[in-house]
Computed example of a mutant assay.
Amino acid sequence: MSLNSFCLSAALLSMAIACSTVAADDDTALICAEAEERYVDLFGQPSSDAEGVTVVTMYKYKFCPEDLSVPVGTTVHWVNVDKRTSHSVVLKDEGIPESDRLFPKEHFEFTFLTAGPPQTYLCGPHWETQEMIGRVTVTP
């Protein structure tokens, strides 16, 4: 393979990777928009209007938003807005046990009391098979 062919192949591969990343981001954005619509249908208000908590929806094997930044003292409210699937929340870094299975319209809450680096949380039954993983950063 000539250097020009190699460079062209590398450039095409780079473009394909960038396009697949954009497509995945677009898919997540669409899923999260649907999740918000479901939340409004179920609870009669946008998730941003929930008093005293930050809402993370669980829908189609995604946490929405997947990345979250909150100040110390914030209570995060994970709510299942799927139609038939149950989910859970595992906060390994916090040392608490996995939540019960959350069926549609059910929720789990946790108040973050310590600032620190990003923490990964996951859905117990779906993190390996569906890559249902989220991240939270708690700021001072």
Rank of each mutant, 00 (worst) to 15 (best):
E34H: 14
R84C: 08
A29E: 02
G44K: 03
T21K: 15
D100K: 02
R84E: 04
F6S: 09
C7E: 15
E94G: 02
D67F: 15
I31L: 02
G52C: 12
K83W: 07
E109F: 04
V22P: 00
G134N: 08
F108L: 02
S5I: 08
V70R: 11
F6D: 07
N80L: 13
V70E: 05
H107F: 11
G44A: 02
T137G: 01
S2Q: 14
S5E: 14
T21A: 08
A33W: 13
V22I: 11
W127C: 03
T139A: 08
A10E: 12
K83G: 09
G52Q: 10
A10H: 14
G95W: 09
R101Q: 11
S88G: 06
K83Y: 09
T120H: 14
H77A: 01
T74I: 10
L102N: 01
S14K: 13
S5D: 15
R38H: 06
R84F: 04
A11T: 11
V55C: 06
D27S: 10
V55A: 01
G52I: 10
I17N: 12
A11H: 10
A50Q: 04
G52F: 12
I17K: 13
T137Y: 06
E128Y: 03
G134I: 02
E51Y: 13
T57R: 01
L102Q: 03
P97Y: 11
D100S: 05
S86L: 00
D100A: 01
F6R: 07
L91D: 08
A33E: 14
Q130K: 14
F112N: 03
S47F: 04
N80K: 14
F112H: 02
T129N: 11
L3V: 04
P125C: 03
D67V: 15
I17D: 09
A11S: 15
T85S: 06
C123E: 04
